[in-house]
Design a protein around this nucleic acid. Sequence first.
DNA 1: ACCAAAAGTAAAATAAACATTACACAATGA
DNA 2: TCATTGTGTAATGTTTATTTTACTTTTGGT
Lengths: 66, 66
Amino acid sequence: MKNKLKIQRAIKDITQAQLAEAIGVSRQSINTIEKGKFVPSTVLALKFARYFEVSVEEIFSLEDDD
Amino acid sequence: MKNKLKIQRAIKDITQAQLAEAIGVSRQSINTIEKGKFVPSTVLALKFARYFEVSVEEIFSLEDDD
DNA sequence: ACCAAAAGTAAAATAAACATTACACAATGA
DNA sequence: TCATTGTGTAATGTTTATTTTACTTTTGGT
């Protein structure tokens, strides 16, 4: 699965730490999710989508190996 | 977080076992996700959405305690 | 009532998410 | 040059997702 968190952050011009606080997770979680090191839960995906005011699908998308 | 998996299943008229096979998880996972016993990963959420041809938000939604 | 299919549940095990702490590195500005 | 800010990464630990097996209960049809 790939994600556009970095792009969405750039649009809102916020840091990983700011996003972490807004969502309620650690900065390292943001960093590792952003880098694709693990797949976040659906609750987190919905929170990202709500925060960035886009759909979940605009942030996260399936890849062939999913 | 609440979900409408049972409703979506009813619309497509499929069993938990059929959904499990279509998505690629165990039937018990479908059952426990449907009953809200745990929160699935974003990959699963995207697969549910793709299978039911709806958005993730039409299946899963945040609640106050999330 | 009987039978079969579907749904619910539970225990135990494994895999994965997420937190915490800590450190390294690059860029920027005083 | 030094300090700061943002980012990447690693180790370890706790919690939670997910599987497997298996059993019980419900539901629908005959």
